[in-house]
């Protein structure tokens, strides 16, 4: 579904932040990109989403080269749904308006149906459908941005640190929602995360970046059991 080959990228005239990354993410799987701050996780996601143009290398979606396509073109032509880390809702708009913004390219007849289905899946949003998005908690905002992405029936969902700034309970709810999306929609989910332990538990595969290179990769369950991974990113022994 997503193939990244030898991608190098950076900002302006600055040095490369990504030094030739290779990555594969298949349909129906959750693939997580992990790593410490500044390792290039978000830059890689932005390269795939189309916000940052790679200096070298290829990005392919469903076998088609999309390296030089801009973000809005990928949304329209390749069914990409992108959920940013921060500023992920339009604060001055209501919950309903925010969700319906994602339905721009969905047939009119289908919009209402999908909207109601999403509200059924996320009762926290249904209860506040007429409230301004600015009145929502951090977790509810994250669910709202997921719902906005999902109403467009994406084939690929890109999530930039969906648990950033959330309480442990809300973080658990958001990860549960992501896991349900995989089961229900069967789409390719590529996620950047700091909370390695929680993220690996719902992921199929993972890539660990370090200073712009892939330091480790493999099945999530293998990485959870890997002693090196545990000592570096999971805080010693894995919690029970």
């Amino acid at each position: 579904m997503i193939e990244v080959q030898g991608v190098r990228a950076g900002y302006g005239d600055g040095p490369d932040i990504l030094n030739g990354i290779n990555l594969v993410a298949d349909a129906g799987k959750i693939v997580t990109i992990l790593g410490p701050n500044g390792c290039g996780k978000s830059t890689l996601l932005k390269c795939i989403a189309g916000f940052v143009r790679p200096r070298a290398g290829d990005v392919r979606m469903s076998g088609t080269a999309v390296t030089n396509l801009k973000a809005h073109e990928k949304v329209r032509s390749h069914g990409v749904g992108f959920v940013p880390q921060t500023d992920n809702v339009f604060s001055s708009m209501s919950v309903t308006e925010n969700i319906m913004l994602g339905a721009r390219f969905v047939a009119r007849a289908e919009r209402e149906q999908r909207f109601e289905a999403l509200l059924t899946q996320y009762p926290a949003l249904a209860a506040k459908r007429n409230r301004k998005a600015s009145a929502l908690s951090g977790g509810e905002r994250q669910l709202l941005s997921l719902a906005r992405a999902l109403i467009a029936k994406p084939r690929i969902l890109l999530l930039d640190e969906p648990s950033a700034g959330l309480s442990p309970r809300m973080m658990h709810e958001v990860f549960e929602a992501i896991s349900e999306i995989r089961a229900r929609e069967g789409i390719c989910i590529l996620m950047v995360e700091q909370n390695a332990f929680e993220a690996l538990h719902i992921s199929d595969t993972a890539y660990v970046l370090s200073l712009g290179d892939v330091a480790m990769q493999g099945r999530a369950s293998d990485l959870l059991a890997d002693p090196a991974m545990r000592s570096l990113y999971l805080g010693g022994d894995a919690p029970h």
Binding site: F51, K70, A71, E73, V75, F82, F90, L101, R148
Partner: peptide, 20 residues
């Protein structure tokens, strides 16, 4: 509406398909 979205959150506007 696209103009207002661009003003408020340009990256988010692109992520719902608007060409900034």
């Amino acid at each position: 509406l696209g103009l207002k979205l661009m003003r408020e959150e340009p990256q988010l506007a692109q992520s719902v398909g608007y060409d900034i």
